[in-house]
């Protein structure tokens, strides 16, 4: 079965993305008080978290319902591996291609966003529809 026709959950993907992007912008502005490079690095660190994670959320909620659960679990495993690989590739690209980089701003923003993302999904949950 390709895709469930009916949407069972109202998944707040857009709301999660907007709140996370706002948090990244706030973090970047806070780091920008230390200098433009720190602010820019914080923004990049936040985006390294945001892009793979948004894709992960989209993949996990692509199929829903009890009939499609084995397919959803397959998507979950695939999406998680690709998310970790994407994160590693983005970090490697940043450390290789961006020559002046503020490493504490980059890693701190990334770590804060990882923890905040998990907390956000806990507090703003999808509303199930029957």
């Amino acid at each position: 079965m390709a895709r469930s026709g009916k949407r069972f959950n109202r998944v707040p993907l857009v709301r999660w993305f907007v709140i996370e992007f706002a948090a990244v912008a706030v973090m970047a502005l806070l780091w920008a008080t230390q200098g433009v490079l720190a602010g820019y690095s914080a923004l990049v660190g936040g985006l390294i978290y945001l892009v793979p994670n948004t894709w992960f959320a989209y993949q996990v909620y692509k199929v829903e319902g009890a009939r499609n659960m084995s397919r959803m679990v397959g998507n979950l495993f695939r999406a998680e591996s690709i998310k970790l690989a994407l994160t590693a590739v983005f970090f490697a690209a940043v450390f290789n291609l961006m020559e002046p980089i503020h490493v504490p701003a980059l890693l701190f923003t990334f770590a804060v966003m990882v923890v905040m993302g998990a907390a956000l999904r806990w507090f703003i949950r999808p509303t199930p529809q029957r």
């Binding site: 970790l84 490697a92 490493v103 990334f110 990882v114 993302g117 998990a118």
Partner: peptide
């Protein structure tokens, strides 16, 4: 199924926090 999927998604977010940070530090 729908509630379990939501809970699984939340737990997945908590579960991969440490490996994600580990990947960042390892790349550094």
């Amino acid at each position: 199924a729908n509630q379990l999927q939501t809970k699984t998604f939340i737990m997945a977010g908590l579960l991969d926090a440490v490996p994600m940070i580990g990947v960042g530090i390892a790349m550094y």
